[in-house]
């Protein structure tokens, strides 16, 4: 486990240099378009004509495909199988499994749904690969998001790996004392307390001191906050963002008109 929780890969690329808000808007726009544009192949088109080329131009194609194959494909694949089997639509049965059957219609339906979810996840993966969390939060704070949000998000990302490390240590300790994660249900349920207790109480007791430490450093100061880093933005990007918003509105309109 890495010491911080972030997909971000540092590269020098066009995609990395874009303002974080632009990339966030792009990710949202792609997801909405994939979901609402009323053409069957929209999600596949978005994936191969926009997301994959962007990952190449962002010099993160390797990382992106790794995430797509290892994280996204299994999750979406499972969804596809579930939906193909469980959707009670269609006549033409292609596969039967007890009371469940996959029809040509349910397979087509499942494929489109899976493709949409695939686009949703991969759009955000692309965003996360090319954007450092503190860059995003500084930019959003500069645009008026209360600075406490930046604190919460970044410190959560840093605390989770620490907590997981602690959890692993506790699990290892309990295992050496005979905890068996394969034993009977009651035993496993009973093991929950000794595993969770130390983890939870230890970290809750720290809250007070941590609050004092940030208060001592002006956390609740009423003055306008500044930022160590300057995040680049341009007129061009602003236009780009608004065009993306227009695209979203347009596709929602098309969806409503079509149906």
């Amino acid at each position: 486990m890495s010491d911080r929780l972030s997909f971000h890969v540092q590269r020098d690329s066009f995609l990395h240099r874009l303002n974080p808000l632009t990339k966030l808007t792009l990710a949202f726009a792609l997801v909405v378009v994939a979901f609402v544009l009323p053409f069957y192949w929209t999600p596949i088109f978005v994936l191969f004509a926009v997301i994959v080329p962007l990952s190449v131009s962002g010099k993160i194609f390797r990382e992106f495909s790794w995430a797509a194959l290892r994280l996204i494909l299994p999750a979406v694949g499972f969804l596809f199988v579930m939906q193909a089997l469980f959707q009670p639509i269609g006549e033409q049965v292609v596969f039967k499994f007890y009371f469940l059957d996959a029809t040509t219609e349910s397979v087509a339906y499942a494929f489109r749904n899976a493709a949409r979810i695939f686009v949703m996840i991969s759009a955000f993966t692309l965003f996360l690969l090319s954007t450092h969390p503190s860059e995003l939060m500084s930019d959003l704070t500069r645009r008026g998001l209360p600075s406490q949000f930046s604190y919460v998000v970044i410190s959560t990302l840093q605390i989770i790996p620490q907590m997981q490390a602690k959890a692993n240590a506790i699990i290892a300790a309990q295992r050496s004392r005979g905890l068996d994660t394969e034993s009977s249900f009651l035993k496993r349920a009973g093991a929950l307390g000794p595993l969770v207790g130390p983890l939870v109480f230890g970290s809750l007791v720290e809250v007070e001191e941590r609050a004092i430490a940030i208060e001592a450093r002006g956390f609740t100061s009423k003055r306008a906050k500044t930022s160590l880093y300057e995040i680049a933005d341009s007129k061009f990007e602003s236009v780009l963002r608004w065009s993306l918003v227009a695209l979203v509105v347009l596709s929602i309109g098309l969806n409503l008109w079509h149906s």
Partner: peptide, 24 residues
């Protein structure tokens, strides 16, 4: 301030317990 400090810890608790429960 204590709320702001507690929230990240609470999120980590959610995730850690979620994972331990999955493990068990």
């Amino acid at each position: 301030t204590q709320t702001w400090v507690l929230i990240p810890i609470a999120i980590a608790i959610n995730i850690a317990i979620g994972q331990i429960v999955g493990l068990l």
